[in-house]
């Protein structure tokens, strides 16, 4: 089973973050929340690996494994 990557893995982190903010630009908070929900599902589908997804869900709750 592969491990969830929690070390830096995005090339051009600042460019990515700016693109993420730009995607939300002009949206009401409710629309932004809905966008984030869609984004989580799209990224989850892309990852596919259930083990990695479970690790990610735990990581997002800031409950560190160990």
């Amino acid at each position: 089973m592969s491990d969830l990557i929690l070390t830096p893995n995005i090339d051009g982190a600042d460019d990515f973050y700016a693109e993420l903010l730009a995607t939300h630009e002009g949206l009401e908070t409710a629309e932004s929340n809905a966008l984030n929900a869609r984004l989580v599902l799209i990224l989850s589908n892309h990852i596919g690996d259930r083990g990695v997804l479970s690790q990610a869900l735990r990581a997002a709750r800031l409950q560190e494994e160990e």
């Binding site: 990557i5 929690l6 070390t7 830096p8 893995n9 995005i10 982190a13 600042d14 990581a59 560190e64």
Partner: peptide
């Protein structure tokens, strides 16, 4: 990003 930067190294390059 800031919350995660305490726990995960990946978030630190995003802190600006």
């Amino acid at each position: 990003v800031l919350d995660m930067s305490e726990h995960y190294e990946f978030a630190r390059p995003l802190v600006n």
